[in-house]
Design a protein around this nucleic acid. Sequence first.
DNA 1: ATGGATGCAAATGATTTGCATGAAG
DNA 2: CTTCATGCAAATCATTTGCATCCAT
Lengths: 142, 142
Amino acid sequence: MIMKSDEYKKILNENSLRITTPRLDIIKILRENHKPLTISEIHKKIKNRKTDLATVYRTLNSFIKAKLVNEINFNDEYKRYELKIDRHHHHHIVCNVCKKIENIDTCITNEIEKDLKKKGYADISHSLEFFGTCSDCVEEDK
Amino acid sequence: MIMKSDEYKKILNENSLRITTPRLDIIKILRENHKPLTISEIHKKIKNRKTDLATVYRTLNSFIKAKLVNEINFNDEYKRYELKIDRHHHHHIVCNVCKKIENIDTCITNEIEKDLKKKGYADISHSLEFFGTCSDCVEEDK
DNA sequence: ATGGATGCAAATGATTTGCATGAAG
DNA sequence: CTTCATGCAAATCATTTGCATCCAT
């Protein structure tokens, strides 16, 4: 059986990224938290307090370039990051109040993307996020 | 026939916003440019060079609060702003290369929003943006 | 050995804020 | 005349960068 740290090293290797402690730490954190995390959340979760914030930024940017990670925008002040290898394409719903994040697996943009392809667009991608007040927060407001 | 400046004043009035030159200028600019603009683009378009950048920021924020304007995120470093009163709900496709913006009128999120309502979410909204390389830019790359 | 990765500190750049003044209602 | 908006300058905060050192390969 493959141990986790070996699996993480394999991920880095396959993307021609050097195996370093900060990178292994960050993959582990993204793996274990099944929701998009901000840079500062990731930084706080690193046990080894030595790792610099700048390293976290640089690591995430190299992960994006390697298409290991998705950058997600909830229209607030922070960008968030999520491992791509973890799960297939999906979207999110963010609670306006408690900021809880749920995943949405339905993807309904194929039709539009088909139209865009007809129009001549290539390399089409999209970002789709939902915002709303979750049932718990609706209750509390009563 | 109602003159344009009167129309803009009416918009401000209806939203209990004081009628000032910067605000009229900014509504005019948003009206005349049928695409989302960044703060700095808006600022540059103001003839009267006296208007401060900070005023543009403050104005846009009060317009958002009054729901006069939508804030749009193309996952680059700038937020963009678009008048709501101009046209009904729509999305965009941004060219990866030339950054050209086209509007998309199809909205296909109703089904998901229906599901979310069933789950108890209230005040549901979403942001959906597309990215791709437009036909002109695909050509040029050959 | 050597190029890439890191820590640290300083720079950058978008956005916000404090305050005195000016204009709108 | 009183409240709110503006201009100006300074502050804030996320993110990036330069550089010397360190480590993976």
